[in-house]
Amino acid sequence: MTDESVPVPLTVKTSDLKVRTLSAVVMLLVAGGALWLGGIFLQAFIALVAIATLGEFVRLVWKASAKTLNRALSVLAGLLYISVAAVALASGGPSMVVILVGSVIAVDTFAYFSGRTFGGPKIAPRISPSKTWAGLIGGAFGASLFFVAMFQGVPAYQCWRYLQLPEDQTQFAFDGPCSYMPWAFNLTNVVQVLLVGLVVAVVAQCGDFFESWLKRKAGVKDSSNLIPGHGGVFDRTDGVLAVSFVVGIVMLTDRLI
């Protein structure tokens, strides 16, 4: 035995990168196709993702605890958690998916680069050693920029508006070319969008921490090996689930009130 590190062959690194890239392309094509088709196709895609996530959640619960009561209660809680998130995503059509998924992607992207650039104290090193406070702040800023871009409207894409439906039900919908008043840059709006960005970043990170904690309890690295090079579906949806769940609870509370 020696203390010298053994370098990883370049072919191993490259092969892993190729697999990850190919998997990412396939995921983007499938998700993008469902988003483009909308309607029942998008709802079916969301349902399939939710079912796959629930299956992986149950697998982790079974590995994390041997007690029947704990397993049963955890599965029921997971079913409620994932179902509410899926309904929230599906209820608003393509625009809701773009807003929720896009904001979480912005959080993850900015958090990654902020954490790598500034480093600093970890948020919860025992649960997720790579998450830093700098990353959280960067993620909040990224989500805020995403919302500003959505409010401003990007000419290459369609904009979103609220459709007022019967029985006072409201949902997002496509509204053709951008034509509404752009977002006004003033102190009130800046503070509001920063707060919303911070809330989204915190909730998304909580979803990530929850899955990381559950995987540690289960003693596994990934929720499954369903997606080559990326782990499981739950590994890809943890942040979106948390944000969508909160949105679903807000929507439900609004209807009840």
Rank of each mutant, 00 (worst) to 15 (best):
T117K: 12
F174W: 03
V84D: 05
S95E: 12
Q171K: 11
L165Y: 04
A134T: 11
D168N: 14
Q152A: 06
S83K: 00
A85N: 10
A88I: 06
I127N: 04
L136C: 05
E56V: 03
V98D: 08
T117N: 06
R161Q: 14
Y162L: 15
A77L: 12
A86F: 05
V191G: 02
P182L: 08
F147W: 11
W133I: 06
G120S: 04
V97F: 15
P129W: 08
L60G: 04
M181K: 12
T68S: 14
L187Y: 11
G55D: 10
E56P: 03
V104C: 07
Q158R: 13
V75L: 13
T68Q: 15
F147R: 01
W183V: 02
P125F: 12
V84T: 12
C159L: 04
L165V: 04
A124G: 00
T109W: 01
A77P: 05
G139C: 00
L54M: 15
W183T: 01
I51T: 12
R126F: 12
L100I: 15
E167G: 00
V190P: 01
G142A: 08
K131E: 04
G176T: 02
G102S: 01
T132L: 06
T132Q: 02
D175N: 06
G120P: 05
Q164M: 12
V61M: 01
A64S: 15
Q158V: 09
A90T: 08
Q169K: 14
A90G: 14
F146C: 01
A90L: 06
V101S: 03
K122G: 08
S144G: 10
F141D: 01
C178L: 08
M181G: 00
S103A: 14
G135N: 06
R126A: 10
L76K: 07
P129E: 13
N186G: 09
L76Y: 09
S128W: 10
A72G: 07
Y162F: 15
I105D: 02
